[in-house]
Design a protein around this nucleic acid. Sequence first.
DNA 1: CGGGAGGTTGACAATCGTCAATCAGAGTGG
DNA 2: CCACTCTGATTGACGATTGTCAACCTCCCG
Lengths: 255, 255
Amino acid sequence: MTAFNTQQLNGSGLEPMVRKLEYRGKFSDADRAALLGLPHVVKTMENNHYIVRERDKTTHSCLMLAGFAVRHKIVAGGHRQIVAIHMKGEMVDLQNSLLGTADHSVQMLTAGKVALIPREEIVRIAFERPAIGQAMWLDTLVDGSIFREWIANVGRRDARTRIAHLFCEFGMRLQHAGLAEQTGYAMPMTQEQLGDATGLTSVHVNRTIKALEADDLITRSTPREIIIGDWKKLAAAGDFDSGYLHMREDDPVLA
Amino acid sequence: MTAFNTQQLNGSGLEPMVRKLEYRGKFSDADRAALLGLPHVVKTMENNHYIVRERDKTTHSCLMLAGFAVRHKIVAGGHRQIVAIHMKGEMVDLQNSLLGTADHSVQMLTAGKVALIPREEIVRIAFERPAIGQAMWLDTLVDGSIFREWIANVGRRDARTRIAHLFCEFGMRLQHAGLAEQTGYAMPMTQEQLGDATGLTSVHVNRTIKALEADDLITRSTPREIIIGDWKKLAAAGDFDSGYLHMREDDPVLA
DNA sequence: CGGGAGGTTGACAATCGTCAATCAGAGTGG
DNA sequence: CCACTCTGATTGACGATTGTCAACCTCCCG
C-alpha cells in the first residue's frame, strides 16, 4: 500500500469497523480498501438523540465512531428495556437495516459520532467479498450470543448478580475496544439506564451498587467511576463467564 | 426439473429448510436443488435428549424436521433459562456451529427428528449462492429480533403479560409453520419449562395460567390444550405486537 | 394396582417496586 | 462569588409481586 493510499484510507473514518471485523477473520488489502471505501456520511450526535425509532423504515446501517448508544424497546405501561449497549467500532444497526423495519429504537447514550452506510452497500460488499461477509455474519451472531446472555441475566439472576454481570461485561468490552484499563472505567449510564438494562428500578440499582461497594466488589471515586479491585471476585459475584463474548483465545483481554 | 429429480429431491428430507429460507428471498431452481442436495444425516431424537451442550466444540448445524427443541443456559445456582424454542423447519444451531464453541445448550423438548449438516457446507452454500446466504443471514437476524423481544419480556413485563405474550408468539409461529390453527394449539412445554422460558417458577406459572383462564383470555380442555377464543384480547393482555417476528405483510397468519 | 411426572393449591417469606424526601454536583446568569 | 436550577444519586417507609416449601391431586403407563 502506498503512502498516498494509506493517507487516503486513514482519512476514511471507517477504520474502527475494519479493526472490529478483522477480529473475526483475515482480510486482504483489497478487502480492507473496499471496506474503507464504503460510501458513508459521518454525523455528530447529541446526547439522547434517536438514530432510529421502532417501526421506522430503515435504509442505512450505523457504525459507532465515538460515544455510546443503546438499543431499546418500550413495553406496555411505558417501561423501557435496553437490549444492547454499543461502543466505538460496533455496527449498531445492521439488524434493523437489513430487516427493513426497525423492531427497536437506537438512541445515543452520550454525545458522539456515527457513520451512516447505505444498506445496499453493506449487502453488496458482504457477498462480493466473502471474508467480509463472513466476518459481518459472525459479528451479528456474537450480538445474538450477547442477547441470549442478557435473557438469562434478567430472567434468572437476582439484582446483585445482574448488576455485577453487567459491570463485568461492559468492562471487558471496553478493554477489548481499547477504551478502558483493567483497573476500572467510567460508566456512561445513569442508574436509571442501568435499571432499564437489567430490568430493575433505579432505586433498586442504587441499593445494589451500594451493596457491591459495601462488600468490596467494586469501589467508586465518583458515582460513575467504577474501580474493580479484584476482577475474579466480581466475576464470581456476577456469574460472569466471558465465553459468550466469543473473543479469540489469544485476546489480551482474556489474559 | 424432471420427474426423476423431483422424486429425488422430495426424498432429501431437507424440504422444511427450503420452505423456511425461501420465505426470506426468492430462490432459483438451482438454489433449491443445492439446498436439498446438502449432505446431512437425519437423526431420531428422544425427549430431553441434548443435541449440543454449552462449551462443546460444534461441527454441525441442526435443522428441526419434527418435534420441538429449546436452547437454554444454566446460571449460578442451577437455575435454567430457556432462550429460544424451535419447531419444524428452523435451523436450531446455526449460531453455535458457526461460532465454533457452544455458548448454550440445545435440548429436545419432545421426541422428534433433526438433520445434521456440516458447518463448512452451510458456509460454502451461503457464499456460493448469495440468495441462500442472504436468506440465512436474515433468518439469524430474525432470531436476534426474537431474542430482543424476550429480553423485554422477562425484563419489563409482569408474569401475566409474559405468559400471555409467550402464548401469542408460540401460537403465531406454529400457525406460520402450518402446525396449528388459529383456534388454539397443544403446548408442548410443561409449566416448569414455561417458567424457565419466562423467568418465573412453575408455581407462579400455574397461578398465572389459572388467572388467564379465569379472565377468559384462554380456555383449556386439558392442561396443555390452549384454546384462544379472542386473539386480540390475548394479544392485548400479552402486549404482543407481531412486528418483531418480521413476517411478510402478505403472510396469511397476519390476516 | 403402584409409581411417577406434572398440575394445583395454600401459607408464608423475600426480593424488588413505589412513593417521596433529601442530597450532591454541574452549569447558568447576575 | 453566589443564588438558582436541573439532573442524577441516595435513603427510608411501606406495599406488592413473585418465590419457597410442602401437600395433595390427576392422569398415564407398566
